[in-house]
């Protein structure tokens, strides 16, 4: 049959795609489906490693055209300084339209993780902020970088995850998702959260960043940082808004982050891994999952499922 590539100077027989090539192809396929089938998509950009991979894949998916959707950063004003620097750098790149949304209600009430606690802080800045942003801009599909290996309720979420007009997720009433046929039909006001990295693992993400030389913030690499210990978590004091207890003094420790969020809510791990290969090496030996560093997940076994039903990513 002539359908197989005719061999020429190279002894071509079969192209074995690697697992990363297949994951990449699937993610790109998902992004193109969204652009073909929805009216006003947006890509959530959180500046973390998963967002960086997602952005890289989006550029590939639509090359040589510019991104056919804007990026949206739902800001809490409590991210690490280096994250803001990276975000502003991305925003200056050609072909990128980046919008920043800060929930005006959270600004007005001065919501912060210290006075109001992590639950209220996350709900008002992130969950409510995201919902308001999506409503105000009228986005009908939002890409998120969540992966199924992160957490149990995510393992059962669809790639095209339907949301009601009130942004609710109903885990028991999800649309069946077969082959790579995604159903993006909806009524006005309803929307989708779309997860192109659903089938990636944390290790895949790191390998891909290494392989494709994708820029990430250096917070993922070990360095001496000023640290205080709170409820067993290592919190890096990123600016002077962090209230310290009497006699509490930040210690310089060699730490890095496996996941990034609001700095007062993100635990660091002690590490000497100051290069990507060293990070990957550490990953291979790791015995705890990355979400362990997230203080917001530990309330109860079903806390993520509950937050997601309310509209959290």
């Amino acid at each position: 049959m002539s359908i197989l590539p005719r061999s020429s100077s190279t002894h071509f027989s079969m192209h074995h795609l690697t697992h990363l090539q297949r994951l990449e192809a699937e993610s790109i396929h998902v992004m193109r489906e969204v652009v073909a089938e929805t009216e006003n998509p947006v890509m959530l950009y959180s500046i973390g490693k998963d967002s960086s991979v997602m952005l890289h894949l989006a550029r590939k998916a639509f090359h040589p055209a510019p991104l056919p959707f804007p990026l949206l950063h739902v800001d809490t004003t409590w991210k690490f300084r280096e994250m803001y620097a990276m975000r502003d750098q991305v925003a200056r790149e050609p072909g990128i339209e980046l919008r920043v949304y800060r929930n005006p209600e959270a600004i007005e009430l001065g919501i912060n993780p210290f006075t109001h606690g992590s639950a209220v802080h996350t709900d008002v800045w992130k969950t409510q902020g995201l919902r308001r942003a999506l409503d105000e801009f009228g986005f009908d599909a939002a890409f998120g970088g969540a992966r199924r290996d992160e957490e149990k309720s995510r393992a059962k979420e669809r790639i095209f995850s339907f949301r009601t007009a009130q942004h609710h997720w109903d885990p028991k009433n999800q649309r069946p998702e077969l082959w790579n046929l995604y159903n993006a039909r909806k009524h006005r006001g309803e929307s989708f959260r779309v997860f192109p990295l659903s089938n990636w693992t944390e290790l895949d993400v790191w390998q891909y960043i290494h392989l494709e030389n994708i820029p990430i913030v250096s917070l993922y690499l070990a360095a001496e940082r000023p640290v205080v210990e709170r409820d067993g978590a290592l919190i890096v004091v990123d600016d002077d808004r962090m209230p310290l207890a009497a006699g509490e003094r930040p210690q310089l420790r060699r730490v890095r982050f496996r996941t990034l969020g609001c700095y007062p809510l993100t635990g660091a791990v002690e590490s000497d891994a100051d290069t990507l290969p060293a990070v990957i090496r550490e990953m291979l030996l790791a015995r705890t999952s990355e979400r362990q560093g997230r203080l917001i997940d530990q309330d109860s076994a079903s806390s993520m499922e509950k937050k997601k039903q309310e509209g959290y990513f």
């Binding site: 074995h16 795609l17 690697t18 390998q207 290069t275 290969p277 990957i280 090496r281």
Partner: peptide, 25 residues
């Protein structure tokens, strides 16, 4: 980002190369 290939420990480099051949089932 510091990413000097000479600084990569040998076994990780080998590992990463093996990853390039790993397939998905």
């Amino acid at each position: 980002m510091a990413n000097d290939p000479d600084a990569i420990p040998f076994e990780v480099r080998e590992y990463l190369e093996a990853q390039q051949r790993k397939r998905l089932l």
